[in-house]
Amino acid sequence: MQATSKRKSEPLVEADWIHAARRILIEEGIKGLSLRRLAAALGVTTGAFYWLFGNFDDLLDKLRQDWEEQNNLHFSLVFESPDLDSRQKYIEYLRILLDKRRYDPEYDGAIRDWAPFSPETAATLQRVDDLRIRQLESMYQGFGNKGLAARVHAELAYFHQIGYYLVGASESLEQRLEKLPFYAQLVCPDIIPLDSTIEDLRALLVRNEDLQT
């Protein structure tokens, strides 16, 4: 990770350190994240850190907050929208999962890998998992599922998606789209027709070319 030309002419701000910490966490794991490593990545001395943070734990707290806010923002915008019905929410949910600019599964994975070593991170992860399942549960309630049925449907949909990323599935966008109607039929029947073509699915779910593949 190299410092940019901006770093030579403008003072670092808190967000610069958090962004660098996020990249190191994703690429190297929590064991690779240290103050010295961060300073080297940003091209500054460790002393510059203390103008912005009280200590290293302060940065770790803000890193957890960054993940909780950034990787949940677009899900919350969809599931909390009063203008979308459950079918529209599911379609928007799929769109977010396919767009790494709005949801970064590698960031999620890095947090999950960190959680066993940090009670604070584990608590943050549990809070986020609970939120995401509740959001899906409300969607299933909109489909007419009641009580425990809505909860189980939500857990099935959520744990399926987590498992997809945890096993490190590597597929092109076309391969994901080809399988998607069959996955959707299992977790949210009758929303994505099984005979949908790749072109149909692109038109429905892919809004630009800058997507995760």
Rank of each mutant, 00 (worst) to 15 (best):
L42C: 04
S86E: 13
G168W: 07
L131E: 14
D195P: 05
E171K: 04
L125R: 14
H153V: 01
D113Y: 01
I192D: 05
F159S: 10
Q65E: 14
R87Q: 15
R101Y: 03
T197V: 06
I91H: 06
S81P: 05
R102N: 05
S170L: 10
L204Y: 04
A149P: 00
I24W: 03
I18E: 01
S9R: 10
I192C: 02
G163S: 12
L12G: 02
L173C: 07
N208Y: 11
D99I: 02
Y164W: 15
L84N: 09
S196A: 13
E69D: 08
Q212K: 14
F79L: 08
T4K: 12
G163Y: 09
A150W: 03
R207M: 12
P82H: 12
G109P: 02
G54M: 03
W114H: 06
P193A: 09
H19R: 12
R112I: 15
V13M: 08
P105I: 09
K100C: 08
D104Y: 11
E10Q: 13
L42D: 01
P119R: 07
S9T: 15
D58N: 09
D210T: 04
Q65L: 13
V44N: 00
G163D: 07
R134Q: 15
K179M: 12
L42I: 06
R112D: 08
R87F: 12
N72G: 05
L201Q: 01
L201K: 00
F75K: 05
Q65S: 10
R151F: 06
R176D: 02
L156T: 13
Q88M: 11
H74V: 04
A20C: 12
V206S: 05
L194A: 03
Q161Y: 12
E171P: 00
E28M: 00
F79R: 07
E92M: 07
L35A: 05
Q2L: 13
D58P: 02
E10I: 14
L12Y: 07
G43F: 08
